[in-house]
Design a protein around this nucleic acid. Sequence first.
DNA 1: TCTGGGGTCCTAGGACCC
DNA 2: TCTGGGGTCCTAGGACCC
Length: 419
Amino acid sequence: MFALVDCNNFYASCERAFRPDLRGKPVAVLSNNDGCIIARSNEVKALGIPMGAPAFEYEEILTKNNVHVFSANFALYGDMSHRVMNILHEYTPDLEIYSIDEAFLKLEGFENYNIQSYGEEIQLKVTKWTGIPISVGIAPTKSLSKVANRIAKKYPDKTKSVYIIDSEEKRIKALKWLKIEDVWGIGRQHSKRLKAMNVYNAYDFTLLDDAWVRKNLAVVGLRLKHDLQGMPTLDFEIVQPKKNIATTRTFERNYTELEQLNERVTTFAVSCAEKLRMQKSCCNAIMVFIHTNGNRKDLPQYYKNIVMKLPFPTNSSIELAKFASQSLERIFLKGYHYKKAGVIVMDFSPEDEIQFNLFENRNLRHIPLMQAVDKINATYGQQKVRLASQDLKRVWKMKQEKLSPRYTTNINDIIIIHT
DNA sequence: TCTGGGGTCCTAGGACCC
DNA sequence: TCTGGGGTCCTAGGACCC
């Protein structure tokens, strides 16, 4: 059996964990730049505020209903995620961390266990130890455990937040209950197509002809169909090193000058380089893009990206910043109001596998230099050592008006309890 | 005035090889 | 009038996930 553990309204629950006064009250979390609503407590969902809604459009409803709004605090969420996953590790050696707030557990050799009470124990312990409420779905396949999890989440009282699909009868009942657009792996386009074929729920989907599914939803869709039918088709994914790494941001205001964008792009390239070094990869290509504000119909629009093949694989901040800067110069046009930019590094090779090039070689002296920089930054705080082309005066900042303290990762923000 | 960020996989078609 | 057969690699675009 597979168990899927999913944290309820994760970011909102993280904020609440250190603010018990917010229990039962509406909580929402915003994206970077305080732009969109990316997490909602049940109370906020009940107000009809959709996922990803622009915050300014809902400002009135939020204020009127006393919604407690927070800027995204990823340091906090990342740390809380760790705590949850550590506890889950105690329950099985086979844990697939699927996202920041979700994990699959493989329950092999549990035939003599009472799975229901096992699930309840996990549910209680995580909730008690971290303050994050979770739901548990258990079933013979991964996609069915997703379905079971949805039922547990929807009916917490009836299920004690744990639901098991362990019979054909329960499987069919669950699939008939699940709307097609809510099936894991069926997105907007597919559900539209399927509804046109009178497929309205997950069960209808499992009755479709294999060949039709293969043709219209590709092998991914076919695998999903079999998995939902109860044949284990989707297995654990082993964590692979990333194939692409990106750092992109929307700015608080528009930029018009090359120098301003250059500072941002340099900083994004340095961030990509750090992430590359963390997974011991070098990249062989880099993409830089710049973008005007697509929502402003009154301003001329410009979107451009450029991919540069590098003369040698590298993960040096200095070299990547230089290549990114050169790329930017080639696509920058004066006269536009830029709102967004990003750097994406691609085509990786392992760090220790240095491909010699006849004419140009990477500067090998950068390797110990970057190690020293990483060490200093790890000890004294991120960005203590920076390139001169980066924002030394710290002019640049993100809109983050409602940021909560970093309760668990910064000693100065630690919680104080008055007794 | 204000609209996030970071990923994966699959497929078709073009360019190329012998 | 008639124009082979069998491959690989790369890329863009489309779909999906959280």
